[in-house]
Design a protein around this nucleic acid. Structure first.
Length: 400
DNA sequence: TGTGATGATTGGAG
DNA sequence: CTCCAATCATCACA
């Protein structure tokens, strides 16, 4: 084995090469020699008992060979590597070198490794999980965002559209996130495998312990996980932006459909004396119009205010709806419960501007808007208990 | 692009 | 809580 290989090294210079090896712990062979002797005694059968000199020179030779291996041609080096691998002292020397490495620089790094999990990463993970980006498909995130968006204002009729839009955007983000994550993981595992193979290969000739490989793998994983953290951060930002946009969409209003406005106006003008629909009426109107109860409330609030502010402007509208009401009433004159029977439909053009403005010559029941249409436009102050029947109500409001 | 219409929001009152 | 009043923000149209 060793005898077959011409020793290029010169024995006495034993320790010198080690200092250049980049392993500060091996600056002196003397420090190596002490523990190694005990080990090699046992399992190599080296005749060190004669004197320590022989073994010391032997080790020096080996180390010298290792040091000079890179200076040689590939074939030579390959052959030498093989020879060294088979050397009887290799295991002993190897373990000693590993031990020394452990005790020196690397052990210092060791302490820093056991860092706790990054709290920021935990936050990001939690958020991605909550938003339904990470974790199982169809997470509650979208639903959560929707409920948050609608809790105060109620859903607009096309909010389901926006909802699906939100969901599709979210799933886009999700798929990008997963693709990237997968890419990173793949790259990480490829790189790790590569490094591990390299180190394993190196460990045949260098003091690279399995633990060190493990540590290196840990380092690689940390590096890649920091990249992943960035990815997660970007994903979180994207989700936040999407969410903000979605929540902001509350403010984006769409005009109600013509039919919905019609229904609301009909109710309003036929209950002009007390245009405060009860909760049930609101629900009914909401159902008819395909909007929410709170939207109905908003509509009536706006309508009352705007009507009051500018009665004149709404006269035409009032006339039209009064006409409609009258028409419906006459058509259903058998029916005691015509929907818009507040005005009873018993007046000729009850909502006409003339009638309204000029004070009425009504006999019998008067349309609400004439009664209620006071000069300042207020509905008898604030008799607005929405659930109680209005004093002006003729009791037919419940027909809705 | 300006303007009026209109749905939503906000703050205060009851 | 509802309602009012003011206001905002957007739509729709000329």
């Amino acid at each position: 084995m060793l005898q077959q290989q011409p020793l290029t090294g010169n024995g006495p210079s034993n320790g010198r090469g080690l200092g250049m090896s980049g392993h500060p712990g091996m600056h002196s062979l003397n420090s190596v020699h002490q523990p190694s002797q005990h080990r090699s005694d046992g399992d190599t059968g080296l005749e060190v008992t004669e004197n320590g000199h022989e073994s010391r020179r032997d080790i020096g030779d080996i180390l010298q060979q290792i040091m000079t291996i890179t200076d040689q041609s590939l074939d030579e080096a390959q052959a030498k590597k093989h020879a060294l691998n088979c050397h009887r002292m290799k295991p002993a020397l190897f373990s000693v070198l590993c031990e020394i490495k452990e005790k020196t620089g690397l052990s210092m790094r060791n302490n820093q490794e056991e860092e706790p999990q990054d709290p920021q990463l935990v936050r990001l993970d939690n958020m991605l999980l909550a938003e339904g980006v990470a974790g199982p498909e169809k997470g509650g995130g979208a639903a959560a965002a929707v409920s948050a968006a609608t809790s105060s204002g109620g859903m607009s009729p096309d909010s389901s559209l926006e909802h699906s839009d939100y969901k599709s955007k979210l799933s886009q983000i999700r798929s990008i996130y997963h693709t990237e994550l997968e890419k990173y993981e793949q790259a990480c595992s490829e790189f790790t495998t590569h490094v591990m193979n390299l180190l394993r290969e190196q460990s045949r000739t260098r003091p690279v312990s399995p633990r060190e490989i493990e540590r290196m793998v840990g380092i690689i994983h940390r590096k890649f996980s920091s990249i992943q953290t960035q990815l997660k951060q970007s994903t979180c930002e994207a989700v936040m932006i999407l969410r903000a946009r979605f929540l902001d969409a509350r403010r984006k209003r769409r005009n109600f459909s013509k039919q919905a406005t019609e229904v609301l106006n009909e109710y309003f003008y036929s209950h002009l004396s007390n245009p405060y629909p009860s909760e049930e009426a609101k629900e009914e109107l909401a159902k008819q119009c395909g909007i929410t109860v709170s939207q109905v409330s908003n509509w009536f609030g706006n309508k009352r205010i705007r009507y009051k502010k500018n009665i004149g402007k709404f006269q035409e509208e009032a006339n039209i709806y009064a006409m409609k009401t009258a028409l419906v009433a006459t058509q259903n004159d058998d029916s005691p419960h015509t929907p818009n029977s507040t005005g009873s439909g018993s007046f000729s053009l009850p909502g006409s501007a003339d009638l309204f403005l000029g004070g009425s010559q009504m006999n019998g029941e008067q349309p609400g808007y004439i009664l209620g249409g006071q000069t300042n436009g207020s509905w008898t102050g604030r008799n607005t208990s929405p659930h109680a029947a209005s004093p002006h109500s003729d009791g037919s409001d419940h027909s809705e």
